[in-house]
């Protein structure tokens, strides 16, 4: 049998393996911020990635536009039918907006949970091994993005920012199995607002789980779910999705609903980051080692 390694090489190899395993252990801990070398690599790779992603995005945009052109006849028909409603709704919105402003003045309330500054960003990459659903954006701390900000598309909420470097930002999607964050949500029903928490994602159904809905409230499939703004980070009113099925929780104390996400997750290229104007509340530590358990 041929000898692959001399003794010296074997020792070097073993030491290398031990160092790497130690590094894995170090980086698996929940770190507050990325270290400087990591930041440098991330920024450099982000710039390089942009060079490749921008032309690819351009081509895919062209194909998408050609697709739109083919659909435009049927779409036009549908939109014309809606246009009649649109004028009526617009005048109603304008009236409500002025009324809202007046009422705000009356009660002296300046900040709204709904208000946010949108920051536009382009997705330059998706984690190739999609174990964790992550996106990498072409803008970072220099553009005003900070950790924990909500990320959405024109259709609805998709996730939150987990890491920022000066030039890139990493987004963890709602569909990610490893997430330990919850989104405070509310169901818009006829009788008022019903609160719940978006916790987890059912990969087989492709739907989010809305849990902890008090069982005395009546919710129906088809009702819309939006972010409540009470979690302290996300602004209020971001569309999350639509309820498809209502069941009871595992202990039958609260209700649970399946929510079909409004945003489309497979193809994401342009996203918007919501920089909430109302003061942010520090996120509550949910990890058990911090002394208090999650619940």
């Amino acid at each position: 049998m041929p000898r692959f390694f001399s003794n010296k090489r074997l020792i070097i190899l073993l030491v290398g393996v031990i160092i790497l395993v130690a590094l894995i252990g170090f980086s698996l801990r929940d770190r507050e911020r990325v270290t400087l070398p990591e930041q440098l690599i991330k920024d450099a790779a982000g710039v390089g990635q942009e060079v490749f992603s921008k032309p690819a995005g351009f081509v895919s945009g062209m194909i998408g536009q050609a697709d739109l052109l083919l659909d435009s006849y049927a779409e036009n028909k549908r939109l014309k039918a809606r246009l009649a409603d649109y004028a009526a709704i617009r005048s109603e919105v304008a009236a409500l907006r002025t009324e809202n402003e007046e009422l705000r003045k009356v009660i002296g309330k300046q900040e709204s949970l709904r208000a946010y500054n949108p920051i536009q960003a382009t997705v330059i990459g998706r984690n190739p091994d999609q174990w964790e659903d992550r996106l990498i954006l072409d803008k970072g701390a220099n553009a005003g993005i900070a950790e924990n900000m909500a990320v959405m598309t024109a259709d609805g909420l998709i996730g939150k920012v987990t890491l920022v470097t000066p030039l890139t930002a990493t987004v963890e999607l709602l569909t990610s199995a490893g997430t330990d964050y919850r989104v405070s949500a509310l169901v818009q029903s006829g009788s008022g607002e019903i609160h719940g928490l978006i916790e987890g994602y059912d990969a087989e159904r492709g739907e989010l789980l809305l849990k902890r809905i008090p069982s005395e409230f009546d919710i129906q499939p088809g009702q819309q779910v939006i972010s409540s703004g009470l979690g302290g980070i996300f602004p209020k009113g971001l569309v999350i999705g639509e309820i498809t099925e209502v069941t009871t929780d595992e202990f039958a104390l609260t209700k649970m609903a399946y929510v079909k996400p409004a945003a489309e997750f497979p193809m994401l290229d342009h996203v918007m980051i919501a920089d909430r104007i109302a003061p942010e509340i520090e996120p509550v530590e949910l990890r058990p080692e911090s002394g208090e358990a999650a619940e």
Partner: peptide, 26 residues
């Protein structure tokens, strides 16, 4: 380096994704 940068683009524009239940990892 070129292949490294093509990988995430492949998964970004791959028609297969979480919804179809099929993943092709480059």
């Amino acid at each position: 380096l070129v292949l490294f940068f093509i990988e995430p683009i492949f998964s970004l524009f791959s028609p297969f994704g979480p919804d179809g239940g099929l993943f092709i990892i480059p």
